[in-house]
Write a protein that binds this DNA or RNA. Structure first.
Lengths: 198, 198
DNA sequence: GTATGTATACTCACCAGTGAATATACACAA
DNA sequence: TTGTGTATATTCACTGGTGAGTATACATAC
C-alpha cells in the first residue's frame, strides 16, 4: 500500500536509530535496518540514497531531542546556575544506568569515522555539540561571567569526558563527579566563596 | 629464515598499531595488517589466534608508552602540581595538532566495541585509564588534598573529554581549555586564592 | 498512463579464518 | 661430519559467509 512516504521514512530512521546507536554503524547492515523497519532493503534504498545518507539522517534525528532534554533538565532544576548545570549531569547519570545506554551517539560515530573528516555524520555531530556549547555560553553570559565561552567549553569537556569514561568503565558515578567539577568551575567563575574542604 | 619469532610478532603489532589507530578496528582487514607487516595472513594467524587477539595486543602495546609520556611531561614541567598537570594538556595539544592524530586509541576502540563489555580490548582500555587515574590520585594524595580520588577523576574526565571533543571538531585548542580547567580544579582543591577574573 | 512505492533476486567485492604443504634451524646420534 | 627428527615459521589457495548497492518487474493511486 503506497503513499505513506513520510511515515515510512520515519519508520526507517527510527529503526536505524535503535540499531546504529546500540550496535554501532559498521556492525549493522542495511538489511538489518530494513528488516527492523519491516520492509526490504530495496525499499530502503528508494528512500535513502546510501548507507551514509541513512547514517546522517539517524544523527540528525537525535539532534533536537537531545538538546531539548538538556534544556528541560536545566530549567526544572532548583537553585542557581551551578546547581542547574549539575542537575544535567545528575539526570544523565540516571540515563546512563539503564542497560541499553551506550554513550553519546555523536561521539561514538565520530570515533568510528575518525578518518573521514568531511563525512556528513561528523558535520552533524560537530554542529550538535556547537549548539549545546552555544546555549551554555549564552546562559553564562547572562550571569555576567567574564569569559562565558571558555566556561561553556570547560563544561562541554566534562560532559563529553563523562560520556567516554562511563562508556568505558560502565560506572555512571563518574557523571556525578563531572557534575561536581562543573559546579566548582562555574562557582569559581562567578567568584563564589571558596568551596568546603575535607 | 625462521627463528626470529619475537621480532616478527613485534612487527605485526606495530603494523596493527599504525593501521588500527588511524583507520579503526573494523575498517582494517587482517590481510591489510599482514601486508603492512610484510607477510601473509596465514602467518599472522600463526602468531595471533584471532583478530580480537591482535586488537588486544595492539592496545596492550600502547599502554606503557602512553603513561610514560604523561609522567615525563609532568616531571619535566616547571611549577607546582597545578602547572605540571596543565603541562600534560599543553603537550597533548601539541600532539593533537599533528595531522595523523586520531584521538585516544583506547576510547575509540571502546566506542567501536560498545556492545561487547567483556571484550579483552575493553578491559585493557579500562585498566589503562585506571592506571592513569591511580597515578594522579597518588600524586594528589602526596599534596595533602582532601579527596584525591575525586580530583583525579575530575582531571581524567577533562582529559578524555578533550580527546573526544578535539577529535570531533579538529580543534586542539580545546585541550588547552581543558588544561586551564584542570588547573582551576586543582588550585581550588589546594585552597589557593581565587583565580583572576576578566 | 505516469508517479510512487514495493519486492524478488541478483552482482560483485570483501573478509575472518582454515587446510595442507613447505622451509628453516637446531638437537642429537651414528 | 653427516643424517634424522622435531618445533618453529611461513606460504598458497581456499571456504563460508556477509554486505552494499542494483536490475527488473509488479502494484497502487491519481
Amino acid at each position: 500500500m503506497p503513499r505513506p512516504s513520510e511515515p515510512t521514512r520515519e519508520r526507517i530512521v527510527q529503526a536505524a536509530n535503535s540499531l546504529f546507536y546500540s550496535e554501532g554503524i559498521r556492525r549493522v547492515s542495511v538489511d538489518e535496518v530494513a528488516a527492523k523497519a519491516g520492509l526490504t532493503k530495496r525499499t530502503l534504498y528508494y528512500h535513502f540514497k546510501s548507507k551514509d545518507d541513512l547514517v546522517a539522517a539517524y544523527l540528525a534525528a537525535r539532534d533536537q531531542p537531545n538538546l531539548a532534554l538538556f534544556r528541560k533538565w536545566f530549567a526544572e532544576a532548583e537553585g542557581g546556575v551551578p546547581m542547574k548545570v549539575e542537575a544535567i549531569f545528575k539526570n544523565l547519570a540516571r540515563s546512563a544506568r539503564h542497560p541499553k545506554w551506550k554513550g553519546c551517539g555523536f561521539l561514538r560515530t565520530s570515533a568510528e569515522l575518525a578518518n573521514m573528516p568531511g563525512h556528513p555524520a561528523i558535520r552533524i555531530g560537530a554542529a550538535h555539540k556547537k549548539k549545546f556549547e552555544d546555549w551554555l555560553r549564552a546562559t553564562f553570559a547572562e550571569q555576567g561571567i567574564a569569559d562565558p565561552l571558555k566556561l561553556a567549553r570547560q563544561i562541554l569537556l566534562l560532559l563529553d569526558g563523562s560520556f567516554a569514561v562511563v562508556l568505558l568503565h560502565r560506572d555512571a558515578s563518574y557523571m556525578e563527579t563531572a557534575g561536581e567539577a562543573a559546579r566548582t568551575l562555574i562557582e569559581t567563575a562567578l567568584g563564589k566563596p571558596r568551596r568546603k574542604r575535607g
